[in-house]
Design a protein around this nucleic acid. Structure first.
Lengths: 336, 336
DNA sequence: AAGCTTCATGTAATCCTTTTCAGTGGCTTT
DNA sequence: AAAGCCACTGAAAAGGATTACATGAAGCTT
């Protein structure tokens, strides 16, 4: 049987209220405080967080719902969010939805039962559309995906502009038949698709987009199919890391040279991005900033529940590497 | 004010005990059950988990303490653990220690306050040594790192054997001056170092080990230093993914060819391992099995607290790729 | 038909804190 | 010197569920 606040009080010869006040920095005289602290040390007492949460009606918990923690963007995001949360005495409940609406609904219910203080959420496409209707008993900050400014705060990458800058970059190195490969699950891919469309249009380029399941294998298969046709593209833009890997695999398989025959570019800068093939050109997302901003929005919201919703859009950084190096036409010079 | 079990009881015209029994599948007649369920739906009632945990004296929570969720092994592990946990109605509290003893101690205290049912833990080196002494009020299963069979269950890779197999593999392709690069923080690196030592010794090879901070940059710096000496090694074994990346970077920087001049091998198979340079030879860890086994050990322990501690050792799988392809000596053939 | 189970239900205690409320004693104010 | 204030402290209520125990009705046994 674990020791409770009662045992501590008994041992210190004070009331339980006083012991509680020692933890909550209420007014306690120095002598009593010392006696209590001695008793705590002697008994090895640890306050029961469930009881504390129940009575104080404050869970000190925030939820974090993402598609899959294994996707590097979310890995990094979760790390930032947890650090920020623990720093301000909060705990995080992490959930992986796998872009599955049922799991998402289940976890939302869990969040309610946990009485979370707030939720940081990368919703599935369906939920994003339905978000205006169902209202949740806690504030929500959308990350990574967010529609028009609605009832909820959100912080996202400027996907439209980012993808457009990839297209312009490929165009600037002389590519004209640029196809796009997008995931078919997340709303991010949709935004990136739109950016791709408007950029190709404004440059007067043809456009062709493919949508596949978000896995390297699916991407590889699709690209193999695309390159079995006579009119091969000379540039590919991928809406994610996994797509990018699938593309590189397909290029290897077909023995197509990068960037000579096809230039490749995509999203998310990773430790290994510069080491895959000739180095991958990518848009780097400010994940740390996104996570911290999400926490800021959440805390602000808690302070001012009625304030109008804010949508924060951060811009990515284009990192140019070998996969989009300009081709001299005569000699393959090492880039960098 | 959120609706409580009382409101539901009132609305359904039953006692709170009956409502509680509907949730806990106690004995409730069909009619009452239906009335209660209607009342739940009508009120949108959600049980308060804090209250439930407090009264039932069961947190339904397990802790997961790892060095850093961003390290791919732990990312995958956390995913497996969370899935298994949620499947059996448990929740997970994730903590990143950053190999820092203070953070670790702080989080251990948190685990006690949360009254976790059990803890899955990749302890820092210091904690691993001190583990026999301090005893915790909940069962612990060590993962990734585990000393001799002590008081705690553990599940680890057979690091000794795995590293030895890397050495033997390099030897089999004709390498004789094989150095080892190890992280200086985790106990895993120590085990791998020992495997390296005994394998080189048994093969009659020279050995030289370097220990650096667990980052690609530190690894790169160290390797640059090593290769500034006249007697360059012809093989390198790295104790982790990050080390491996640092080595590849150094090789690029120095324009040293892999595997011709130096063969490279390390740990953890990732999506991109086959795409970095000529493809990286690695030991693949059965992360999923490790995670599931850890959960199994934990649940078994809960059923039989007094049973003797078990140490489960799983073996890795050697995946040979271009970075350790045998060199023909005449022509550089592309390795598949 | 009396007595014994069994099943469904309600009442009240309990889990462990925080928080409200009501002092108590000592100081300052007027 | 009475009044008011302040800083501490303790007793008790409250938070929202589960569960031990009591009760009453129904079904069985003999």
């Amino acid at each position: 049987m674990a020791t409770s606040i009662k045992d501590v009080a008994l041992r210190a010869g004070v009331s339980v209220a006083t012991v509680s006040r020692v933890f909550g920095n209420g007014p306690v005289s120095p002598e009593l405080r010392e006696r209590v602290e001695k008793a705590i040390a002697a008994t090895g007492y640890r306050p029961n967080l469930s009881a504390r949460r129940l009575r104080s009606r404050h869970s000190h918990t925030i939820g974090l719902m993402v598609a899959d923690i294994r996707s590097p963007f979310f890995t990094e995001l979760s790390r930032v969010v947890e650090d920020e949360a623990y720093r301000s005495g909060m705990r995080v409940i992490l959930c992986n939805t796998d872009e599955n609406a049922d799991r998402e609904a289940m976890y939302l219910r869990l969040m309610e039962e946990e009485r979370v203080t707030g939720l940081i959420w990368a919703p599935t496409r369906g939920s994003l559309e339905r978000l205006a209707e169902d209202d949740l008993p806690f504030p929500v900050v959308l990350v990574d995906r967010g529609g028009p400014v609605g009832r909820h705060d959100s912080v996202v990458l400027d996907n439209h502009q980012a993808t457009a800058s990839l297209v312009h970059h490929l165009h600037s190195i002389g590519r004209s038949r640029i196809v796009g490969l997008f995931g078919n699950a997340s709303s991010t891919a949709i935004d990136r698709h739109l950016g791709y469309l408007s950029a190709t249009a404004s440059l007067g380029l043809s456009s062709e987009a493919f949508f596949v399941a978000p896995s390297a294998e699916a991407a590889e298969r699709e690209i193999l199919k695309v390159f079995s046709r006579p009119d091969r593209p000379d540039g590919i833009i991928a809406s994610s890391n996994l797509m990018l890997l699938g593309i590189v695999k397909a290029m290897r398989r077909l023995d197509i040279r990068t960037p000579d025959d096809v230039a490749i570019a995509g999203f998310d800068n990773e430790t290994w991005s510069e080491l895959v093939g000739p180095g991958l050109t990518v848009i780097e997302q400010p994940v740390g900033d996104i996570g911290r901003m999400a926490m800021t929005l959440l805390f602000d919201r808690l302070k001012a529940p009625k304030a109008p919703a804010r949508k924060v859009m951060l811009s990515g950084r284009l990192i140019v590497r070998g996969s989009t190096a300009p081709v001299t036409g005569l000699v393959d010079e090492p880039v960098d």
